[in-house]
Design a protein around this nucleic acid. Structure first.
Lengths: 223, 223
DNA sequence: AATAATTGATAGTATTACTATTATATTTGT
DNA sequence: ACAAATATAATAGTAATACTATCAATTATT
């Protein structure tokens, strides 16, 4: 899996960058350290100036790759969901039993990425933490509708749509496949956040895993 | 209900304001128009300067009520969840059947506030829209843990805890009452957002209500 | 070696998020 | 009704943010 990805590269919607960061050392450095810096100080405090200082480069150079930090976050999110989609497809192909297939998808979408699986400049474990804490901010803006039209959220929607199809495969008569799938993907991020900051309103813990909750839920509601 | 509230006032954690906005005309104007202005231009673009212009008052005067716009949003959120809690308690007391009680709670938490029910300066329908679009931003910050300790999220957690208790009343052996309750409250906001901006990944629509989805889900999983 | 492209350094602008000061209303206590 | 207290308005000022523009210095390409 990890080895496979070494020779596969994830491509992101071209409208999200001015210059493709994958095409240069500086670009890769921007991606690598933006993930670390956003994780360290939070998206609100993150600025291109601070990132420039971190990578011994200049603010103005970063602007040649990304219009602004919002686009950068959209880029990172898009990369993340592409990575999830790839792993989701990989884990579910050739699984003939619909429920087993759905269960595998749930595992991919709910698991916390613990180790840095990457050989690349992208630390998926930290990126996963950023997505948990910052992803909703990419679409909770006044510009959602325009940005949605531009296709900035296509990969995310694609992940949800794949799960919708799997739910329908399990039971074509279930009335709320869409709501359930989107609840699952968004809810998983939220539960991971609660686990870190609002422990007493979640059952998630070291010993209790999220996939169990969702698989139990889906077996009872959809099947 | 509406009449009852006219003589009941909701009090908000004192640490969230410098001066209680309920104690003056200017304070009430700040609350009333901050709701309208945040709805109109979004929280990111909202500033105290713009609010001052809107209410023909001065930026510096608004700073005497709230430290910054983040605290203002926390204030509005706290007010909103208190209002929800009040209605939740009101709707569920004296309902003896646990499932019926839970169903009523679900209705309160999932319904979209359509009309302005208020006689006060607070437009609950628009406030509901703000909560849908901006509430998660109050806690997705680097300061969550400190602010949580200060009690800024107490009312929200109280609403979730009431639902946890109701789930446990329905079935004390259900293993994921906390996760389910927090998923419900957060998920409801999210689904309303999807309905407005990402229609094709939700079943929510004019004809399809959210409470039905959750009541179906809870009857199948908890009962 | 010449040319093109990339990056770095510096400067500059408008806006934001405040704080401080002083003037002007408005309220309240006697 | 008048003085004192309090609230609000107006103005100015600061540091940081979110950029844009220009030009110099590197580095890569032909």
């Amino acid at each position: 899996m990890t080895n496979l990805l070494a020779n596969l590269s994830i491509s992101v919607n071209e409208k999200l960058y001015v210059k493709n960061p994958e095409t240069s050392d500086l670009g890769k450095k921007i991606i690598e350290h933006s993930i670390l810096l956003i994780h360290e100080i939070g998206f609100e405090s993150f600025t291109f100036k601070k990132l420039g200082d971190k990578i011994q480069s200049n603010e103005s150079s970063i602007y040649r790759y990304f219009e602004n930090k919002h686009k950068l976050l959209l880029y990172l999110s898009s990369w993340y969901w592409s990575w999830i989609e790839y792993r989701l497809v990989f884990a579910t192909t050739n699984v003939s039993d619909p429920m087993e297939k759905l269960a595998k998808a749930i595992e991919i979408v709910t698991e916390e990425i613990k180790d840095d699986l990457s050989i690349t400049h992208i630390n998926e474990s930290i990126l996963n933490k950023i997505i948990i804490g910052e992803f909703t901010k990419t679409f909770l803006t006044k510009e959602v509708d325009e940005e949605n039209k531009e296709g900035y959220f296509l990969v995310y929607k694609s992940v949800v749509n794949r799960i919708i199809l799997m739910i329908e495969e399990v039971n074509p008569d279930y009335k709320y496949a869409k709501t359930l799938a989107s609840t699952l993907v968004q809810g998983a991020l939220h539960q991971h956040y609660l686990k870190e900051h609002f422990k007493n309103i979640t059952n998630l813990s070291e010993s209790n895993c999220l996939a169990d909750f969702y698989i139990d839920l889906i077996k009872k509601t959809v099947l």
